[in-house]
Computed example of a mutant assay.
Amino acid sequence: MRRLLVLLFLLPTLAQAQDRRASHCIAVAEAPGVEYLHRASYRAPLPDEFTVRLNYVDHAMFLIETAGGLRAITDYSGFAGAIDTPDIVTMNRAHITHWTPDPDPAIPHVLPGWSDRVGEPVGHHLDLGEMLVRSVSTDIRGRAGGFEENGNSIFVFEVGGLCIGHLGHLHHEPDAETYAALGRLDVVMAPVDGGLTLDRPTLKRVLDRLRSSVVIPMHWWGQGSLDRFLSDMSDSFDVEVRPTSYMEVSLRSLPSRPTIVVLRPAFLSEPE
């Protein structure tokens, strides 16, 4: 009888929760087994509904493609190459290379990583069925010194059972509340420039704490800064350097040991 009364009490809350789907990333504790990733190309069909294609476009910009045809671009600066109108773009405003003031009005969903009310978290939570996109706000360094509260967002893309995080122009180590809001990130795009975003020791602490199965370096300036990052992380992560700008990943193909996967940025072009 007590269980029935509790259920009746919760029914209104459960109905409201359906309007804002909870994040499954926060509940995920471990990644499953291993199956090697394989080559693919932009706009080619994906093998199943649980596989996602990640294309490293430029600087901090990635195209995320789903089996159902959804396309999301991270830290969108206005041009990604030969691509039709994406479904979603996310932006951060630390530098103009991470956003555009004039996104194409044909893009259905444009998600800025900052609020019009300075200092307030933006709190995006966009559920498109096949993909859930949410933001976790962090601070950025102000132009006149100090920090601008909640001026950057880490965007999390939940798709195909995966939790994919893009750290944006992260300027400080997340606190415990931020780590909890992120939850488990199976794949993370991390800025590895070594100073404009996080310094190298701080970035190492962040990635060791996240312990994602796949880390994709971004925001690197030449081979030297990339090599220094790889050297810093070699005791905690395996390293796989690819000659391509893209990879396919699913829960089944996550490596058994945390791995840094280096992709070579390339603007999107029409498939041959």
Rank of each mutant, 00 (worst) to 15 (best):
D75Q: 13
C163N: 01
E177W: 11
D87H: 06
M233T: 13
P103S: 07
L128K: 01
A180E: 08
Y76C: 02
D238K: 13
G194S: 15
I154V: 02
L46G: 05
S41D: 12
A31V: 05
V122Y: 01
R264G: 10
G195V: 05
V187D: 03
D84W: 00
G222M: 08
V6P: 08
L111Y: 10
G123F: 06
Y76E: 05
L185Y: 04
R43L: 10
S269A: 13
G195Y: 12
F79I: 01
I73A: 04
D199Y: 06
R143Q: 04
E149M: 11
T85M: 01
Y56N: 05
D235T: 15
L63T: 01
L10A: 12
L162S: 03
H24E: 10
W221C: 13
I73W: 02
H172Q: 06
P258C: 06
T202I: 03
L167R: 04
S231V: 13
L167A: 03
H219D: 15
T100P: 06
L196D: 11
L162W: 01
L230A: 15
L196W: 11
F62L: 15
P12C: 09
R257T: 11
A266H: 05
E240K: 09
P105K: 14
P47R: 10
E272I: 11
P32S: 07
L128Q: 02
G68K: 14
V6D: 13
V133F: 02
G165C: 09
A176G: 06
R117N: 13
V6H: 09
G68L: 07
